[in-house]
Design a protein around this nucleic acid. Sequence first.
DNA 1: GGCCCGATCGTCT
DNA 2: GACGATCGGGCCA
Length: 200
Amino acid sequence: MKLKRSFYLRQPLEVARDLLGKHLIHITPKGKISGRIVEVEAYGGEDQDLACHGANSGRTERNKALYDKGGFIYIYLIYGMYHCFNAVTSGKDIPAAVLVRSIEPVEGIDLMIKNRGFRKNDVRNIVKLTNGPGKLSQAMGFGKNCYGIDLCGNKIFIKDAKSIPEENISYTSRINIDYAGKAKNYPWRLILNNSKFLSV
DNA sequence: GGCCCGATCGTCT
DNA sequence: GACGATCGGGCCA
């Protein structure tokens, strides 16, 4: 079952928690690519979050999708060469999203290998395909052309799965947001304990 | 394993 | 004009 709008119309931290274990799916012309979500970060919402891209400059051309209602895709270019994939959460006009930081490859692994530019024999370690926000976006085939796409549509969506028990989740601080003042220590990075596919 | 650095460019100041 | 919600390669151990 595909996750519905109501799933996303909640606080980013709640959505982040419930996204762990779910399957992110991309239906491409060449086939289906999917992976199980094992690491996420929550941004924005009702609490003051200086790390959120909507926090400092308000609404801009770059971040406008963040202000959509929950269930749309916010994706952006980072360091000039990678993309980070986010699921927008909360209601319209509230900048909030969940960054997907790592997934475990499930379907379309041959396509992931191609998208990542690996030669077949290079893949001793399937982990390196998707264990980071830039890597998984590349493997899944996500780029700026995904900007603003509705996750409640048929091209890119998230499939429900059995929910993860609380004792299998750890809450840590988010990565590379030293500039974010007091928000930098919020425990809003959630990981599936003991997953081999976490970011490094 | 660890640390350091360069790549590469849209966005904001 | 500076820099980032990153990555991979080079080097040392």
